[in-house]
Design a protein around this nucleic acid. Structure first.
Length: 642
RNA sequence: GCCGCAGUAACUCAGUUGGUAGAGUAGCUGAUUCGUAAUCAGCAAGUCGGAGGUUCGAAUCCUCUCUGCGGCACCA
């Protein structure tokens, strides 16, 4: 409904104060009133029960607008806590905020809930809804509130109240026998909460700190209508269908197994995809003046001590002991690249020197974090280090950002988030150096009219950095690209050059990656496209499907022509029905399926259909090759014209 | 690493209170030569993640351990 604004002049009767609900009910159709969850008084969200004390401007807050949904979800979080307390009076309530698409509530409860407890909790929630308790606000002093919760054994609530700043109003909301500390506002009664579902349980640390106790977190979702709830649940299902680990099985790309946790077994088709991407980036880097190198997988521990990695990340490095020497498997390539830079005496004339490497890195990621390709222990980055003079930092940054956007566009990603992380409290280098470094990076971004967020204090101790994140079709954000300025590593590993005056000068290093880990990027790509990769990336681009063995000869000829045009072809001559062949290749996400029967063989043509089921009808081989070549070469710029 | 859950045939899963494992798909064999998302029949297939324990007897109960899944913390 259109936003309604009610100026209250003349509506407020000082002797008998009206509530927000009463005033709104005078203007709003009773049926519509059922969707009003709260009011906005001079722009401030308030409960419907709020008495109107003075003239103001009042608007209704509908359940399906963003603020209204937030209120619904927050009230549903209270409902959840209410149900939990009813089932487990000894449980302690802590916090229950609204999050994207839902809410959660953290409890201290022994033993912790498991997923089987959710239906029972949900049942009690629905009972409380049926009881339709009014939700009432009241205000307490700090001491009253602390005493109130302490007496009820709610130590966490009391702790939260102690930390509320002086002068802030402390309000509680009551529904039946349950009361919770809350700023509000809330829906007027529990009967208003209908379209919700508890989705999962998980452990979560009190205050997000792993040194604290682990609480039990219950996640839920709530919406303004059954349709909206159903739509959300469908969206979740859709996302599950896109899971890259599931797609990998269907498409026969890779697998994991117990003996190599977090490390990928790439199958033939998956490795083909991997090489397509690696070769593409390799070409881009070469064109941008990078030199590709290759360095050892493991290096003596002493080098990592000198570089500072052993100190900071030692526990996350794999190591091997042989003949009393300890080698650390590299978690990154940079110290090795410095070794290459350090061979001989470098002149300023050689700078900038850009060293790239597709080297396998290993990081002992904590076991609980592994997640298919998206968080692996062995991976390859499109990694490179630029050794340059301080003056070259900005132009190098500009060139890098251009290259990065070029690459992202080819992969079909245009929605990029940029964050600049500036000097942290713990850092090395003087302020003047940091001023210059931060300015070089931010000017490089501004130079290209890119908008970016600043994350103050989030830079690495050795220099500021820019992070580039992609937003995929499901709206999820993935950090991929990075550009980091580093003054420390050259210092620690003694990397310098001779400047134009013949003096030795410390070189500046830029760490940079565009895709980040190739493994992770492939996982993102698969989920982004639901496995249906753009033509240029598809490991198999065309499947030729024969109707009977009478067409084998013609199909072979067609395959040869397509292969000569540089297309990746699968020739399916099996004695199977065409329906089965189409089904299998569709599941494998082959972009183009070509049916070859007696008709096509006789006419020397092709019956073409897309992976998504669109039938393109009969095409000549010549036109087919031309169309596909064009589509392939367009890469990310392709707009499929159906 | 922490909390919860799970691990049964190549894959997806079923297997009531303990009584020596079952389906669909894939595979193999045979038949079928077929027009746009599953042709039919037969056969074969499992130390029930691993180790230990309880028991006359364990996929099932207990302990330990590994791996995976969902979160949390972490992510150079």
């Amino acid at each position: 409904m259109p936003k309604m604004t009610i100026p209250l002049h003349g509506e407020v009767d000082q002797t008998v104060p009206l509530s927000v609900r009463e005033v709104l009910a005078r203007r709003i159709d009773p049926q519509v009133m059922g969707n009003v969850v709260a009011g906005r008084l001079d722009g401030r969200p308030v409960d419907l029960s709020t008495p109107l004390a003075s003239d103001a401007v009042l608007e209704p807050v509908m359940g399906d607008e963003p603020l209204g949904l937030e209120i619904l979800r927050h009230s549903t979080a209270h409902l959840l806590a209410h149900a939990v307390k009813r089932l487990h009076p000894q449980a302690q309530i802590t916090i229950g905020p609204v999050i994207e698409d839902g809410f959660y509530y953290d409890f201290l409860v022994e033993p912790p809930f498991s997923a089987e407890d959710l239906p029972g909790i949900e049942r009690v929630m629905r009972e409380i809804v049926a009881e339709d308790w009014p939700i009432e606000r009241r205000v307490m002093t700090r001491d009253e509130a602390i005493r109130f919760f302490s007496e009820r054994g709610e130590a966490y609530k009391a702790e939260i109240i102690r930390e509320i700043p002086e002068g802030e109003v402390i309000s509680l909301y009551r529904q039946g026998e349950f009361q919770d500390l809350c700023r509000g506002p809330h829906v007027p009664s529990t009967g208003r909460l209908r379209d919700f579902k508890l989705t999962q349980v998980a452990g979560a640390y009190w205050r997000g700190d792993s040194r604290n106790v682990m609480l039990t977190r219950v996640y839920g979702t709530a919406w303004a209508s059954p349709e909206a709830l159903a739509q959300y649940l469908e969206r979740i299902e859709e996302a599950e269908k896109r899971d890259h680990r599931r797609l990998a099985k269907l498409m026969d790309l890779f697998h994991f197994q117990e003996e190599a946790p977090g490390m990928v077994f790439w199958h033939e088709t998956g490795w083909l995809l991997y090489r397509i991407i690696e070769d593409y980036v390799r070409g881009k880097l070469a064109a941008a003046g990078y030199r590709e190198v290759h360095t050892p997988l493991m290096l003596d521990r002493t080098l990592w001590e000198r570089s500072g990695h052993a100190d900071k990340f030692g526990t996350q490095m794999f190591s091997v002991v042989v003949e009393n020497r300890e080698y650390a498997i590299k978690p990154m390539n940079c110290p090795a690249h410095v070794q290459i830079f350090n061979q001989g005496i470098r002149s300023y004339r050689e700078l900038p020197l850009r060293l790239a490497e597709f080297g396998v890195c290993h990081r002992n990621e904590p076991s609980g974090t592994l997640h298919g390709l998206l968080r692996a222990r062995a991976f390859v980055q499109d990694d490179a280090h630029i050794f340059c003079t301080p003056d070259q930092v900005e132009p190098e940054a500009v060139a890098f950002i251009r290259l990065l956007f070029d690459v992202y566009r080819d992969f079909g990603f245009t929605d990029i988030e940029i964050k600049l992380s500036t000097r942290p409290a713990q850092r090395v280098g003087d302020d003047e150096l940091w001023d210059r470094a931060e300015q070089a990076l931010s000017q490089a971004l501004q130079h290209q009219n890119l908008s970016f967020a600043i994350q103050p204090g989030e830079g690495a101790f050795y220099g500021p950095k820019i992070e580039f994140s992609l937003r995929d079709t499901l709206g999820r954000v993935w950090q991929c690209g990075t550009l980091q300025l580093d003054y420390v590593l050259p210092e620690r590993l003694g990397a310098s050059f001779v400047n134009a005056h013949g003096d030795k000068e410390r070189v500046v290093m830029l760490h940079r990656a565009i895709l980040g880990s190739l493994e992770r990027f492939i996982g993102i790509l698969l989920e982004h496209h639901a496995g249906a990769l753009p033509l240029w990336l598809a490991p198999v681009q065309v499947a030729l499907l024969t109707i009977t063995d009478q067409q084998d000869g013609y199909a072979r000829q067609v395959a040869r022509v397509l292969e000569q045009a540089g297309l990746r072809v699968c020739l399916d001559l099996r004695n199977e029905k065409i329906g089965l062949k189409i089904r299998e290749r569709s599941i494998q996400r082959v972009p183009y399926l070509v049916v070859i029967g007696p008709k096509e063989a006789a006419a020397g043509r092709l019956a073409v259909r897309r992976q998504n089921g669109t039938n393109l009808g009969e095409i000549s081989l010549e036109n087919f090759v031309a169309d596909l070549t064009r589509e392939r070469n367009r890469r990310g710029l392709d707009v499929v014209e159906d």
